[in-house]
Each structure stands twice: as C-alpha cells, then as structure tokens.
Simulated assay, not measured.
Amino acid sequence: MDTAADERLAERLAELRVERGWTLEELAQRADVSRSTLSRVERSEVSPTAALLGRLCAVYGRSMSRLLAEVEAAPARLVRAADQRIWRDEATGYVRRSVSPPHGSLRAEVIEGLLPAGADIAYDKPDDTGREHHLWVLDGLLSMTVDGTEHLLEAGDCLRFTAETSRFHCPGPTGARYALVVVEP
C-alpha cells in the first residue's frame, strides 16, 4: 500500500473503534494487543502486521480484504494486474495481492498470497463469521493449520475450510504462492 492508503487504513481502524464506543484499552483487551501498539497503528506511526490486522478484523467481524477495500475507492469491473492492490507485511515478507477486490454486492473475492520460505503467520483470534475459504497452492509447499489440524499442501492441492483459527507456514526451501478464494456467508 502507498503512504496515503496506509493513512486511510489507520483512520479506518480508528473509526471502527470509535463507532463501537470502545476505548483503546477495551480494544486492546478484545484483540489481545497492547494499547500502545494500537495507538501507534491508529496514528499511522507504524504499519500493522498481517497477524495484527487479522486480530483486528476478527474483533470487528470483517475479512482483511473487506477492511482494505474500505480504504480504497469502489472497485471497477476489470482490475488490471498493475492496478491490483498489493499489501506487504514487512515483518514476515508476506505479500498479498487483491486480485478481485471485494464489493458490497458480491460474496466472493480472490487473493494471491506470496509467502517466503520460513515465514509463519498465525491468525489466532477466532473468526466466527462463517466465511468459506478455498486455498489453492500454485507454487511451493505450504503448511496450513486450520483449527489445530495441520495440512501440508503442495502445488496443485486445494484446501476448503471455514476456520476459527489458522496458521500459514512456508517450510521452504522456496517460497509458496497460492490463490485464496474467500466467500462471505
């Protein structure tokens, strides 16, 4: 994301908290994240990691893609590769491309994920929204843990799941590239 998008994301996260009437302390308890980290994220002093965004999205009851779409203009019918939103998690090296951005009238979205060898991302805040996920590994090897059950996926494998918790781990020796289709209930 660019600097302006980072600032819009920070503003949107602060708006979501205020809309619910929560203090930073209340959000920190709900998301199990330090108050100071949340404050720095909301002031756009630091970019949130994928894991932190996952925790906040779980607390706010929305997918990460929907949150990121809320800070962008409404998507066009055709989204050229050069115009697809890319978000990077500097802490893990994870790259997330919103191939078909979510839209209020649509129930599905397509995401491309690039996870470098050794990267490990846990989404440990329960997602009770009933979202259906279809994860299709395009290249590499991906260890996917869903609600405590590990699945080792190779290129071509597809895992369908609804999850309370999940963990993406790329054991290497090369990175993993996958497509993730998220379907809202």
Rank of each mutant, 00 (worst) to 15 (best):
S143R: 14
D139F: 06
G118Q: 01
T162S: 15
E150D: 07
F168S: 09
A163F: 15
T149K: 12
T149N: 13
H169W: 09
A155N: 07
T129L: 12
L153K: 10
A122P: 00
C170N: 11
C158K: 06
G175H: 02
D124M: 04
H169R: 14
A155V: 15
L153W: 08
T162F: 09
D127F: 02
G140H: 02
E154R: 15
S143N: 13
H133K: 10
F168V: 09
G148K: 11
A163H: 15
P173R: 04
C158Y: 05
L138S: 05
L152R: 15
D128P: 00
D139T: 15
T149P: 03
G172E: 10
L138I: 14
C170Q: 03
G175K: 06
G175V: 06
T129I: 01
P126I: 07
P173K: 02
S166E: 14
H133M: 02
L138G: 04
T129V: 05
V137I: 06
S143D: 14
D127M: 07
H151T: 00
C170A: 13
F168C: 05
L141S: 10
E154Y: 13
T162Q: 14
R160H: 12
R131N: 04
T162I: 15
R131K: 03
T145V: 07
T129Y: 00
E132T: 03
T162L: 11
C170P: 01
T174S: 11
L152H: 10
C158W: 05
S166A: 15
V146D: 10
E150N: 09
G140M: 06
L159K: 12
E164C: 09
A163E: 12
C170G: 09
E164L: 14
S166D: 10
D124H: 08
L142G: 04
A163G: 13
E164H: 12
A155L: 09
V137Q: 03
L135R: 00
G118Y: 00
V137G: 03
L135P: 01
D139L: 10
E154L: 11
T129W: 01
T129K: 01
F161M: 08
A163Q: 13
R160F: 07
F161P: 00
H169D: 04
L153T: 07
E154N: 13
